[in-house]
Simulated assay, not measured.
Amino acid sequence: MGTTNIHLLSPARVCSYPARSHRKPPHLLPKHGRSILSLLVPPTSVTTKDISDHSLKLDTRNNDIATSSRTVYHDNWLESIAIDYLSKTIQETAGMKNDDTPGYKGIVAVSAAVFRELSPTEQRAFVLKVLEKALPSFTLFMASFPFFFMRLMPKSTFTREFFAIFTTVAFRWLVGPSEVRELEFEGKKERNVVHITKCRFLEEANCVGMCTNLCKMPTQEFMKKNFGIPVNMVPNFDDMSCEIIYGQDPPAEEDDPAFKEPCYKLCSLKKRHSASCIS
């Protein structure tokens, strides 16, 4: 198998990263039945392939990861366009060129190079810059009435539930299949939680640090900055699932359970970071 060649052309420009607020997460209610959305929208075509090396076993745990299969995605032409666009945006922002790894693996390969070269704070600032390039302000604010309305009422039930539905429909190619679930929020039930069955990025990267610094933290900041809505992303590193809770403030980094996890045993970037996977 050949080695991926990623050429660094110029250093990425970064900015400072603000602190986080803390709120105790409320209790998630069990989901009963399938959502209407899951019946109307066909899921991303995926299959699973058995693996026997149990490469996703954690350092400080004796048990293997809950699954022994690896997901194989069959992206359609529209999903392939989105993947290629994001990959090129990441490369342009980083000043890197990836000639050897196309498709989703190319996104992860360049992300891994960014992870190796930049500090955690710089990584998060880098992703914010990528998101701003991929989704310019005009698109974010004025592309459609729902998005404009949500900026006027970021704390409404409509906004939280709309984002949950939109995430499951629009980002299957990026994070994998997901569904909307119910949460008891401020004394009433809302469908403002996205449950990702098995995160595509985490499975492909096989690195806790890449999840927290290149996905979780910058996404939370991006949503708060551009839409005024708090988002708490709660990854489960045992089964690689994730809960995206719209309307819930994320905990402070020092209190966030995601930053207390060791990385996977066969993480290819393990020498880059410590057991906490953030340094």
Rank of each mutant, 00 (worst) to 15 (best):
I65V: 04
D53H: 09
I51E: 15
S80L: 06
D64E: 11
S55R: 12
S55C: 11
T67H: 03
D59K: 15
I51Q: 15
I51V: 13
S68C: 06
S52N: 13
K49H: 14
H74Q: 14
L78G: 00
N76K: 13
E79M: 03
A66F: 12
S80T: 11
R70M: 15
H74L: 08
R61S: 10
N62F: 05
S69L: 04
I65K: 04
K49T: 10
H74S: 11
I51D: 15
H54Q: 10
D64S: 05
L78A: 09
T60C: 13
D59W: 08
D75N: 14
L58R: 05
D64C: 03
D64F: 01
V72A: 07
D50C: 04
D75A: 11
R70Y: 05
S68R: 02
S68V: 00
Y73E: 01
W77E: 12
T67W: 03
K57N: 03
A66M: 04
D75M: 08
S55F: 02
R61M: 07
N76M: 06
T60M: 05
D75L: 12
I65Q: 09
R70K: 14
V72R: 15
E79R: 09
L56C: 01
K49G: 01
D50I: 13
L56F: 15
S68M: 08
L78T: 10
H74Y: 14
S55L: 11
L58W: 06
L56T: 10
L58T: 09
N63S: 06
D59R: 14
N62Y: 04
L58Y: 07
E79I: 09
S80C: 04
L58N: 06
L56P: 00
K57A: 04
Y73F: 15
D59V: 15
K57W: 00
K57G: 04
I51N: 11
I51C: 01
D53Q: 05
V72Q: 13
A66Q: 07
T48M: 05
K49L: 13
Y73T: 02
N76C: 02
R61G: 03
Y73Q: 01
S52E: 15
N76F: 04
N63M: 03
N63K: 07
N76P: 01
I51F: 09
A66L: 07
N62L: 05
S52T: 14
L56Y: 11
N62C: 04
I51H: 14
S68D: 08
T48P: 09
S55Y: 02
L58G: 02
H54C: 03
D50L: 13
D59Q: 12
N63Y: 02
N63V: 08
S80E: 03
H74M: 10
W77F: 12
S69R: 14
D59Y: 06
T48A: 03
L56E: 07
L58V: 06
R70T: 03
T48Y: 14
E79H: 09
K49R: 15
W77H: 12
W77M: 08
N63L: 04
N62H: 07
E79N: 08
D50H: 09
S68H: 08
W77S: 10
D64R: 07
V72F: 08
D53A: 01
N62V: 05
